[in-house]
Design a protein around this nucleic acid. Structure first.
Lengths: 311, 311
DNA sequence: AAAAAACATGATTTTGCCTCATGTTGTAAC
DNA sequence: GTTACAACATGAGGCAAAATCATGTTTTTT
């Protein structure tokens, strides 16, 4: 039993046979001998047990069954060429797909301008944001469910390429007339009897909890909200206190809508990194996106410090 | 320069790799060794200069470029299978295409009922009538522009298979009060001063002209019409005389709308044959169509004689 | 850390495709 | 009709692609 003899080569032969109307001419165009095509055709005809071309007269013409295979060839071969062309553009890093996984809510503030800028320069790259929040964005990369992740921790891994983005201060946010606003800076202890307003994410994604409150054994009451402005509104109306990146709320503080105070002795800082698969790091569009991210952050976010590029 | 390495085999491998998530499992399903697939994949990756599957972890998953080829495979492979299934039905003579070329106008009267009957039994056979009238319908068969022709002359040809249909009388048609209606039969000479009403076809397709008038050197005035009823109307209103197959006009004669008279001593007769390509003659649907034609003619046409089947 | 499973790789064998040489068939010219 | 020509068919043989085998490397599991 000979499983499936049909190959793309045969479809190419059939199409050329149809175009040229002769075996010899088709052979010439395919850089093969007349004999080769004759054998090829005979093999197909034997396999399908039907004549595919009527070779009794010139120009030779397809039989009904031959026509059916020609129809197939006309569908398949252009699709193959199209795929190979696109593949080559992908390899060259002109076309591609850039799915971004984000683990912090506030990142959208600078991610959107970055994407807008990028889209204008790389029309053939499909941009997308991977919906939902994930425990370990790096594993999304390695399972090819995302192509870039924004993370707050750097863990060395040879399969992966990190680009440092920036360092920012996380400030405690209080209503202007809140008693704690008297203090120049807050300590872990200050949060004990407060209601803490956060995004609805696990504790280990909240820098304040993980780095300050948890070590001090303090676990204040909670309230959550998806939107940054909603959190600020709650703070302003004295429903609780929050801790957010300063750059995300600076404009509100400047307008005295709320007050901001450093947390702990030297302040509480976070860092952000972009991480991509090692093999994608040097694709032109990927390198450009990484570069654009830093540019946009530096110019759009007040009070941050770009981290130095390594390597 | 290695021209196009991609073959259907590779697309099958890719799809199976995706399905199973492992090289070994895919190899098993394709009845190949793990090594074979590994080599195959490497060859593709070398050719396109890109990794197609990320094999660092289990289950292995496609890269962006791999995804693009998988998309191609998902389009192409089902199309190939569909084509092969249909091909096999065509070879078995269950499916196919039956384009009919006709050289006589009146044939539609019995061809339509034949096609209706046939269509009900062979849903997978595409029926069509080749439009326009052609000098040599047999050449339409041999150039695969038609699959069956109805002709009035039998010329032996090994590439072609004839099925005799029926013999019919061609009668002269006259207005009831036409002077010639006095005669029991008409001779060539009787047409000399008449206007002859015919279909708009070349002379050698008109049996009366070719077999009777031309040999006698008689060339009467002409008038043409596409439709049989229109011709009869012209005859009835004494604009001229006509000569048509008796079966086509018998009902009008029976109702004394017009009169019919035999032509020449023994009468003028025509014969019809169906002709198909030799290689198609034994396809089930073709054999059935040929059989149905005779059945329908025998039962629907008055005053004809089925010709004996030969061979 | 060891064992097991899965993938990669080089050498070798096998298969199948192409070419060459020649035969056959169909077509055009005389 | 015969000859000449062009196009396709066919069998044998060579060669290269593709499969296998044996073994090494990597990854996963316990």
């Amino acid at each position: 039993m000979s499983r499936s003899v049909l190959e793309l080569r045969h479809l190419r032969t059939m199409l050329t046979l149809q175009d040229t109307g002769s075996v010899s001419a088709a052979a010439q165009r395919l850089h093969l001998t007349q004999s080769a095509l004759s054998h090829q055709l005979k093999a197909l005809e034997t396999h399908y047990n039907t004549q595919l071309f009527d070779r009794r007269r010139q120009p030779l013409c397809a039989t009904q069954t031959g026509q059916r295979l020609l129809t197939l060839a006309q569908l398949v071969l252009p699709a193959v060429e199209e795929a190979e062309r696109e593949l080559s553009r992908m390899v060259d890093g002109e076309a591609g797909c850039l799915r971004i996984a984000v683990e912090c809510h506030t990142c959208f503030d600078w991610l959107m301008p970055t994407m807008d800028d990028f889209r204008a320069h790389w029309r053939e790259v499909e941009l997308d944001i991977v919906s939902g929040f994930h425990a370990d964005p790096t594993s999304l990369l390695l399972t090819h469910r995302a192509d870039l992740a924004v993370v707050s921790e750097y863990e060395p891994d040879p399969a992966v390429f990190y680009t440092p983005l920036f360092r920012y201060e996380i400030m405690a946010l209080l209503a202007n007339d809140h008693p704690l606003a008297e203090k120049p800076r807050l300590s872990a202890e200050d949060f004990r009897d407060q209601t803490l307003i956060t995004y609805p994410v696990p504790d280990d994604m909240l820098d304040l909890v993980r780095q300050v409150l948890l070590p001090a054994g303090i676990n204040p009451a909670r309230r959550t909200s998806e939107l940054t402005v909603a959190i600020l509104q709650l703070v302003a109306s004295r429903r609780g206190v929050a801790a957010l990146p300063f750059w995300a709320v600076k404009s509100y503080v400047d307008r005295h809508y709320i007050s901001a105070r450093p947390i702990g002795e030297g302040g509480l800082f976070g860092e952000l990194y972009a991480v991509v698969r090692q093999e994608d790091a040097h694709l032109p569009y990927m390198a450009d996106f990484l570069h654009t991210m830093r540019e946009v952050c530096a110019s759009a976010l007040a009070g941050i410090a770009l981290l130095p590029l390594v390597e």
